[in-house]
């Protein structure tokens, strides 16, 4: 009798154990069922609100079929005083159209008032950050041609090229960083002892303040030439801070910078302002995005 009672007890216990096991949480069963599926590759998106930090290209590219109209202004120097309305009386402009050929290739053209320059660039993703890849790697190549009258009869002398390798990562939902080794080549330099080729290193990042507002900063350091060059020293490294304000189809980038040029060569190696002296330019980039070709699922 006693043995039987014990057996009954054990059986009941086993039974309840079995029952509780079969009542296992659906979530656990689902996870178990799906665990053999290979992880799905998921590209990291929205590392930046725009394809530039301020002047410096970041890892972001236009999506396939997206067309962007970009209009940029840089005003005069803040230290030019009330007579010049702290620089607002004088504006430089660049406007451009850009297009996403694919999710990997982004092209653009622009026209700047500075040296009456036309520029064109292509940005090609080599690696894209995803759940399986911690960084993005993007190549950016641009060419610019100034069209100022009567400076040089030589067409080649008007050309300049910039090559950049953009290494970037969206560290978390707020912080994204880029590191940009750069080579600038000008076919012709006008000042004595200025180098035609300059290596520069760009660093920058964004900090997301709210859903639609980010703080951006960028600094491009020119590697000094081996021989002392007055021309090199007269120019300054560009440093900019800015805010991105996103309102759906538009992004407004407001900036303070010692650089006034808005295409690659101009801000990288021809920045004349100095932050310390108050040679700071207020400016903005106004960006409008259109979806020209809709994605089909």
């Amino acid at each position: 009798m006693k043995a039987n009672k014990r057996l009954l007890f054990v059986l009941l216990f086993l039974g309840s154990f079995h029952l509780s096991y079969s009542q296992d949480d659906l979530e656990a069963i689902l996870n178990d069922a799906e665990k053999n599926q290979p992880p799905k590759k998921e590209y990291t998106t929205a590392a930046f609100k725009s394809t530039r930090l301020i002047n410096l290209h970041n890892t972001e590219r236009l999506a396939k079929g997206a067309l962007e109209y970009r209009i940029c202004h840089r005003f005069g120097r803040l230290n030019s005083g009330a007579y010049q309305f702290w620089g607002l009386d004088q504006a430089e402009i660049r406007m451009g159209f850009e297009y996403g050929v694919s999710d990997w290739v982004h092209i653009g053209i622009g026209r700047s008032s500075y040296q009456k320059t036309y520029d064109a660039f292509a940005k090609v993703a080599i690696l894209r950050q995803s759940n399986l890849m911690p960084i993005s790697l993007v190549y950016m190549g641009s060419v610019a041609i100034n069209t100022i009258k009567d400076i040089s009869p030589d067409f080649n002398g008007r050309l300049s090229y910039v090559n950049q390798l953009i290494i970037g990562s969206k560290v978390n939902s707020r912080v994204s960083l880029v590191f940009v080794p750069t080579l600038v080549h000008r076919n012709l330099v006008t000042e004595v002892n200025d180098a035609v080729s300059t290596v520069a290193l760009g660093v920058g990042g964004r900090f997301k303040l709210t859903q639609r507002l980010t703080f951006n900063t960028e600094y491009t350091w020119r590697v000094p030439p081996q021989q002392k060059s007055l021309a090199f020293d007269n120019y300054k490294d560009a440093f900019s801070i800015g805010l991105d304000i996103e309102t759906g189809g538009h992004v407004f980038q407001l900036t303070l910078s010692n650089a006034r040029g808005m295409f690659d060569k101009a801000y990288l190696v021809e920045t004349t302002g100095s932050w310390g002296a108050g040679d700071i330019h207020f400016g903005f980039n106004l960006i409008r995005n259109f979806t020209v070709i809709k994605k089909k699922e």
């Binding site: 998106t45 929205a46 997206a66 189809g249 979806t291 994605k295 699922e297």
Partner: peptide, 9 residues
Amino acid sequence: KFASALMQE
């Protein structure tokens, strides 16, 4: 998936 990449973002 959206037709517009920006909308998706």
